[in-house]
Design a binder for these strands. Structure first.
Lengths: 206, 206
DNA sequence: ACCTGAACACCGTTCAAGT
DNA sequence: ACCTGAACACCGTTCAAGT
């Protein structure tokens, strides 16, 4: 009779933590084969679980991706505030943030790909995705305002300045991850640092 | 007997120009539903042609996308050189190019999505894709060198400067197309112009 | 509560066959 | 030369059923 009770060893193993396991499995698949190669069948079989087990924990495939993206923005926020915390008094916060952003994209491009790959259509359906993304953006915005207050950055609408800096970092990150910046030996981090320096001092001769 | 000769009106119609028609149909589908919604069955039925007719003209689905991307880079090149041609003596070539790049992305985002959406893995398989992309980049590079020669831009490795400027424009374009730059009323073109001005004059107070 | 298995409506691609 | 139709091996998702 006892053998009848242990209905399914595999299922029992994941009891209560299948959700976490599904996320890790999805991330591993994305890392190894890319987002577009992610299949629910693949995720399931990685955990020796049916392809439909996932539906107990996520509404659908997109919800799984939204969760990966949301965690990505949380991690990005941590990376950015960690970098800010490491900037010495009088150090260059802009360069530190730019470098941290690009480093995050390169080192976590499973997350990064999911965050910005265009697989998520209705961000509105995933409130904590928006929340985490906005929190990360706020770190950049606060940095700008702070630098402006110290007179280290010219005045101007801080949101627009932040969007420009984000665009530069995002451009370097996406082009680097796509393998489009290989004309010089400069690394993606080198390039974003150069970009920040140019933004600070200007391209015009003095 | 004559009725027997006209085997299939539909097929006859596309004779010799099905390839072009397939490209246009693919572009229309991408415009209306996005790249990820593009199916060979859909493209075929749009032209009242079998889903496999395409294989006479393209190696596979990816080759069709590569062709769309390749034409996109050609069009981008035309847009950039058109913008350059319109810059008056002593005008701001950097801003003109940045604005033209973003305008291209916004106005042709079926092409743009295909060019940079990450659907093409092996660029090496499509020589004229690389060629057209490199030709577009060269326009930017030549502009930098020219501005340097005129003493309007500081010295420095022109390829790296070009990659930074490309990154800024590409970042603004992709974030704008993804709907992520809606915190201010500034348009994508406004933002890239601001970015170019900051790059030119620097963020640091003078 | 949690998971399965069969079923459904889709894919891209191959290939023998038609005209 | 150009296109078709059936077949194959995949998808995501639904749902009745099992424990």
């Amino acid at each position: 009779m006892q053998t009848k009770l242990r209905r399914k060893p595999k299922g029992a193993y994941h009891h209560g933590q299948l959700e976490r396991a599904l996320l890790e499995a999805a991330l591993a698949t994305i890392r190894e084969e890319g987002v577009q190669a992610l299949t629910l069948r693949g995720v399931g079989s990685r955990l020796s679980v049916s392809r439909t087990a996932l539906y107990r924990h996520f509404e659908d495939k997109t919800a799984l991706l939204a969760r990966v993206a949301s965690e990505g923005f949380r991690l990005l926020g941590e990376a950015l505030s960690g970098a800010m915390a490491g900037v010495p008094e009088g150090g260059d916060a802009l360069q530190a943030m730019g470098a941290a952003y690009v480093r995050f994209a390169v080192n976590n491009h499973s997350h990064y790909q999911t965050m910005f790959g265009g697989f998520l259509k209705d961000w509105g359906k995933y409130p904590d995705l928006i929340e985490n993304a906005e929190a990360a953006f706020s770190l950049l915005l606060d940095m700008i305002r702070d630098e402006q207050a110290r007179g280290r950055i010219i005045s101007g609408e801080p949101i627009e300045l932040a969007e420009v800096i984000w665009s530069l970092s995002h451009g370097v990150a996406t082009l680097a991850v796509a393998g489009q910046l290989k004309r010089t030996p400069a690394s993606a981090e080198d390039l974003v640092l150069l970009g920040c320096r140019l933004l600070e001092n200007g391209l015009r001769p003095r």
